[in-house]
Each structure stands twice: as C-alpha cells, then as structure tokens.
Simulated scan of single mutants.
Amino acid sequence: MTTPHDELRLLPWSGPDGKPCFLSADDNTGYLARLADNTEAMQLGLGSELLDDALAVLSDAHADADEIRLLAADLTGALRDAVRVATSRGHRLATPTPSTR
C-alpha cells in the first residue's frame, strides 16, 4: 500500500546517504513527529541566532576572509534547514478544494 504525497511529512534531517527522510503517519503527536517538531524549532532558532552573528561579522571592517568564509558556510547550512522546514510545512498545509457553483 502506498501513501499519497500529502500524507508524507518531510523530516528535518537526511538519511545516511543524504536523501530526504519522510514520515508517514495519521497521528501528528507520535514520538517521531514530536522529535521533528522540536528539531525544526531548534534549527530555526539557531538560524535566527546565526543571522544576528552574521550582522555583527559583516559590520566589522576588520573581519578576515576565513571568518567570512566560515560565516557563509554556516549561513548556507541554516538556509538549507530553513528551506527544508518551509517545504515540509508547506506540504502539510491543507489544499483547498475547488468549489463548484
């Protein structure tokens, strides 16, 4: 039996081979769903903190190339996580059904 795409939740982590992981569940209160919710919240929180750090580094006229390169790598990871969270949440939004008049 296959699960329709809109019943799959994209999880906020990848498998060992880098491929996306999905959760198929009717109950959003299970252990893995709660773990995913907490992981998403942590990822978004860390991204917000990193944004504050980025503003400080970029406003420092004496920041060296290594520091800016590290910042770019960290921002790339945070953006990847934020896009994954947004994609997952977007897929879980209720799709409106067209009304017939």
Rank of each mutant, 00 (worst) to 15 (best):
T3K: 08
P4F: 01
P4V: 01
P4T: 00
H5Q: 07
D6H: 13
D6W: 03
R9Y: 12
L10K: 05
P12S: 04
P12N: 06
W13Y: 09
W13Q: 01
S14L: 12
G15H: 12
P16F: 09
G18C: 06
C21H: 10
C21Q: 14
D26Y: 06
D27H: 05
D27A: 03
T29Y: 14
T29N: 15
T29M: 14
T29I: 05
G30N: 15
Y31C: 08
Y31H: 14
L32G: 01
A33R: 10
R34W: 10
L35T: 07
L35E: 15
D37H: 10
D37L: 09
T39V: 13
E40D: 14
M42L: 10
M42A: 11
M42Q: 12
M42G: 08
L44V: 06
G45D: 09
E49C: 05
E49R: 13
L51Q: 14
L51K: 14
A56V: 15
V57S: 04
S59C: 03
D60A: 02
A61I: 06
A65K: 14
D66Q: 09
I68M: 13
I68T: 06
R69A: 08
L70Q: 13
L71E: 07
L71D: 06
D74M: 02
L75M: 06
L75H: 00
T76G: 09
T76L: 11
T76I: 00
A78P: 07
R80G: 08
D81Q: 09
D81M: 07
D81K: 03
A82Y: 05
V83N: 04
A86M: 09
R89Q: 10
R89T: 01
G90C: 02
H91V: 02
A94E: 15
A94S: 13
T95M: 08
T95C: 08
P96S: 10
T97W: 03
T97P: 02
P98L: 07
S99A: 08
S99Q: 13
R101F: 03
R101T: 12
